[in-house]
Design a protein around this nucleic acid. Structure first.
Lengths: 237, 237
DNA sequence: GGATGCGGTAGTGTATGCATTAGAGGATGC
DNA sequence: GCATCCTCTAATGCATACACTACCGCATCC
């Protein structure tokens, strides 16, 4: 590799925001994941270890480590002589993932209701709901999507189950690409906002069963909507 | 490394059962995971890359890859200068994991009921239940535990959701060690067998809601039981 | 013309080498 | 006696070297 490029010797002279010092492998993982989630590396893209190593300015070793993790995330597939391939998401995949999300998130809602949240904690959810309403009123779909993700993330957090939170985050990430693409294809998500309000209400009233059921129905509707859109797209163009 | 030991040169002359040829990294992953799950490497054990590499007769590179995966599985923790440490499972961990399992499995039961299984498919569940009854009658707890795991695995499979199945399998593996340890400490699992029968019944009648609720309650009871045992053990000896 | 065999090559999997560094333990100062 | 600093070692993270092999293309043969 070109010995001319200087900045690759010391692993931690990055001098970026002084945040947690990343190992090369972690850096590779994060950068690649970001590129994939942002559709910068579109589904179907094929990339060899060597190319990636060069583009990330490191050797193949940490890149490999990152690739293995991305494969575990279900974002890419490693095909021995063809590098890694960014996986597309089919309607069936989406249904599977949404079933998992439905299971996990509705349980999270139930747990939150069981625990009995403080009014402050519930307020964080209210804020998200309000933001979603505002975004919808302003017809700003991206803003709505951000608030929606925020709501779901907060809700899951409030379950008090760190593993569950992390797990859900991973699956949400996987759906991110698709949700962004279908954002403009779906009807205005007014119903969604109503659903959220009902879930918050059930949590506030400490009714786990209702929280679970309500959230489950909410996610099932979202799932049906998205998979239908995807299926249409698969059949169509 | 000792050049004397011959059999480490070619990666695939293993000539074992002729099954899928494993890469060294995969081999390391599987062997280590097995050792951990069998409590061969007990919780708290610390192992350096070098030691592992020697014990597995390979270099550090594939071992590292395996370690990263095991860390992702939540089985070990990698501490930069101290190798990897096999993680213990606290009562709190167990509760978190069981909440996740409850969410996923009860959804799986619901999905199975929704799909409408053939009588053959349902029969596989019946077989497991019968085996559990037999094991219980024979007072063979290990056999019962095996049948129990089998039942849950089959049930999850019958959801038709491959991702969900794989996910559940991972979490079940994590609880395996603890379940084996607590097996003799818990009361005879007669109730458990009743629960299973009810779940199968709900699936047979294609009642997703009842399948979900029944299985959820079943898992919640199991969770309470196990975490209590663990907590007692944590406080006690 | 199509099937078959056969180098050649590119890409990978693994081993090894090397610089860095965290941390243990001793020495020193108070 | 205790804390602090320093040194030295051992483990790591990464780069590189190397052997193996699947695949591509061409040539040959039927």
């Amino acid at each position: 590799m070109e010995t001319g490029t200087a900045d690759q010797k010391t692993p931690v002279e990055d001098a970026d925001s002084g945040a947690t010092r990343l190992s090369r492998a972690d850096e590779a993982y994060q950068v690649l994941k970001r590129r994939i989630l942002d559709n910068d590396l579109p589904a179907g893209a094929q990339l060899l270890e060597q190319e990636l190593a060069e583009s990330l300015n490191m050797s193949r070793t940490p890149v490999r480590e990152a690739m293995v993790q991305l494969e575990r995330d279900g974002l890419v597939e490693i095909r021995p002589r063809h590098g890694m391939r960014v996986l597309p998401i089919s309607a069936d995949d989406m249904r599977e993932i949404y079933d998992i999300l439905t299971a996990l998130e509705s349980t999270a809602a139930g747990l939150a209701a069981e625990r009995g949240l403080s009014e402050d904690e519930i307020a964080t959810l209210d804020v998200c709901v309000a933001e979603m309403d505002a975004a919808l009123a302003a017809n700003d779909l991206r803003r709505w999507a951000r608030a929606d993700e925020e709501f779901h993330a907060r809700l899951t957090e409030l379950s008090g189950n760190a593993r569950l939170t992390a797990l859900v985050e991973g699956y949400v990430e996987r759906t991110h690409r698709v949700r962004m693409v279908t954002l403009t294809m779906r009807p205005k998500p007014t119903r969604s906002n109503q659903d959220h309000r009902k879930v918050v209400d059930a949590i506030r009233q400490r009714d786990p069963d209702r929280a679970r059921r309500t959230h489950r129905r909410h996610r099932q509707r979202a799932s049906a909507l998205l998979t239908d859109l995807l299926r249409a797209r698969e059949g169509g163009p």
